[in-house]
């Protein structure tokens, strides 16, 4: 079985996030970038399936600027067999991403595609679902447990009320939640060897997809600074403030 894993290069979850000066986006200069944590989990799951003898090849794919090669190399160091970069300097919307991934899926014919449920930069949480629709494949999103028996994939997923179990026959799409697994660290020798694994770069314009954004971002503003708290001296004062200042009761 061939598995395709989509990985996105995002601002590191522990980096300080700043809105840029003209309020059109997030400052990415001099900010540490790394693999989207949900995608690390997606790759880890693929690696475990390969270690169980259930997968024969893992392809990591990213869509983004040329620097996204670093993220793909990290995927190769962790154990993916080869990598594909669809190169673009544009900020693409989920539908376009799904369409590009669809193109590659038709070419590579994986039986399973694993994606993070969302990227931590814009939290869209749409690409996996849209890709499933374009491919007309079954999907199991927010996976917290994956079991594969022959062609049958069983996925436990986290929903508001608890856990739901879904099953589908391959091919299909899984998007991963936080508690699916704990990603491994790459081993030193594998980091050094990652460069010798194949990494194909495809220009995004060559895939015949209209990349034009449908949405316009008007402005991005940081949340207001939280004002200092106050100490109330009685329950009556608290009720008064909740009713007349906060207007919540």
């Amino acid at each position: 079985m061939k598995i395709l894993v989509a990985v996105k290069r995002v601002i590191d979850p522990y980096a300080k996030i700043r809105v840029n000066a003209d309020q059109t986006g997030i400052e990415t200069h001099n900010v540490k970038l790394s693999m989207n944590p949900f995608d690390e989990i997606a790759l880890e799951e693929a690696l475990r399936l390969k270690e169980q003898g259930l997968a024969s090849e893992i392809i990591v794919i990213s869509i983004g600027p040329i620097q996204a090669q670093e993220t793909l190399r990290q995927g190769l160091a962790l154990g993916a067999d080869r990598a594909i970069l669809i190169q673009t300097d544009q900020d693409l919307e989920p539908l376009v991403i799904a369409q590009l991934l669809n193109r590659i899926s038709l070419r590579e014919a994986p039986q399973l595609i694993i994606l993070g449920k969302q990227a931590i930069d814009n939290d869209a949480n749409q690409t996996g679902q849209m890709l499933a629709a374009l491919l007309n494949w079954p999907q199991a999103t927010f996976a917290s447990k994956v079991t594969i028996d022959q062609q049958r994939v069983t996925v436990e997923r986290e929903i508001d009320g608890g856990l739901q179990t879904l099953a589908f026959d391959l091919p299909g799409i899984i998007t991963t939640d936080l508690r699916l697994n704990t990603p491994r660290f790459a081993k030193l020798p594998n980091i050094m060897k990652a460069k010798s694994k194949p990494l194909e770069i495809i220009a995004s314009e060559t895939l015949g997809i209209d990349l034009t954004p449908r949405l316009t971002t008007l402005s991005i503003k940081p949340p207001p600074i939280r004002p200092k708290g106050i100490l109330v001296h009685s329950v009556d004062e608290l009720i008064d403030k909740l009713r007349f200042e906060a207007k919540v009761i």
């Binding site: 160091a77 660290f185 790459a186 030193l188 980091i191 990652a194 460069k195």
Partner: peptide, 15 residues
């Protein structure tokens, strides 16, 4: 080099 940066990042995370 890219590898040197990748390995220091990995070790940083491990640490």
């Amino acid at each position: 080099s890219d590898e040197q940066r990748a390995l220091t990042e990995m070790v940083e995370q491990f640490t």
